[in-house]
Amino acid sequence: MNKKIHLQQLGLKDFKEAWDYQEQLFKEILDLKIRNRRENLNAETPNYLLMVEHPHVYTLGKSGKPEHLLLTEEELEARNAKYYKINRGGDITYHGPGQLVGYPIIDLDNFFTDIHKYLRLLEEVIILSLKEYGLKPERSAGETGVWLDVGTPFARKICALGVRASRWVTMHGFALNVNADLGYFDNIIPCGIRGKAVTSLNMELGVREVPLAEVQVKILKHFEELFEAEFFEKVN
């Protein structure tokens, strides 16, 4: 089993371009798995983690409702934002500058074949990373992602998760609000959940900005530990 993961830093990249690139890597891994089975081969399948920021964009998952976007096309344009219906699970979410997005495109046959475990480990990566800042992040029953003050009137989401998987190959992933402009969430019903607020790391810490590179180092460390993986490239 190949537990090495090729880390790729995409910087600030248009969502559609990053999505197309995800699809390309996803298909390459799937095609290799199919060829291995058909030709009785044992070629090693690669794994990737794409780290990226996006310009303002709203994405609607397969189980989402279009009415959860509260903007017209003209209003989207006025806010310099785009909108895509995509093939991950979940409802609607927002991506934008100051948000750290991770797309693991990995073959779970190299790790474990359990989607529920995969989602819980992604959440745990974020939970452990945020605990290093003195926060108390947690899960909310029946609501994928990472939250603060669950079970209180002040419950708020700090990280969204949404994935797609086929033949145990994953794509899409997590979006952690580090320094994100939370005003953009006012234009949607986030993840289809009414009455729940969103937050960001810099807001919780009461600072103007938290370095994304600093947060990423913590995420990569905990990802390696929990998945018993090793990255090709490491952030120092």
Rank of each mutant, 00 (worst) to 15 (best):
P104L: 01
P66L: 11
L70T: 06
L32I: 00
W168E: 06
H54Q: 09
K4N: 14
Y103I: 03
T72R: 05
L182E: 02
K157F: 08
R35T: 13
G206A: 10
Q99D: 00
Q216V: 04
V52K: 07
D109W: 05
R208P: 00
G195S: 09
L176P: 00
L226H: 01
V101K: 05
N42H: 03
D14L: 10
Y103R: 07
E75C: 10
T199G: 06
K3E: 08
L71A: 05
G183Y: 08
A175Y: 01
L121A: 04
D114L: 03
V210M: 06
K196N: 07
I115W: 02
P55Q: 15
R167H: 14
G195M: 12
R167Q: 12
N80C: 11
I126Q: 07
T152E: 04
F15K: 00
L148W: 07
Y118I: 06
I126L: 06
F154K: 13
T144I: 12
K85D: 13
K62T: 13
K16P: 15
K136M: 12
V198A: 02
K65L: 13
K117T: 07
R79Q: 12
G98D: 07
Y184I: 06
L135K: 04
L70H: 02
V215R: 06
A141H: 13
A180E: 06
N47L: 10
L7D: 05
W147I: 09
E209C: 09
Q24F: 14
P211S: 14
I189P: 01
L12R: 15
H6I: 14
L32H: 00
S166N: 14
A229P: 10
I115N: 03
I92A: 05
A213N: 15
E39H: 12
L12I: 15
S166Q: 14
L212R: 02
L50Q: 09
E204Q: 14
L220H: 08
T199F: 02
V101E: 00
E77N: 07
D14W: 11
V163W: 03
D14C: 13
E214W: 07
G134C: 08
R156N: 09
T72A: 01
T113N: 05
V210D: 09
Y103P: 00
L121C: 04
V235E: 14
F15R: 03
L226D: 01
K82M: 10
L41W: 13
P104C: 08
N36V: 03
V101T: 09
G11D: 08
R88I: 10
P190K: 06
A180F: 01
R79S: 11
T113D: 05
E53M: 08
P137T: 01
S200I: 04
R167K: 15
V150K: 04
I105H: 01
D107L: 03
G195C: 08
K13F: 07
A197W: 09
D107A: 11
G90V: 13
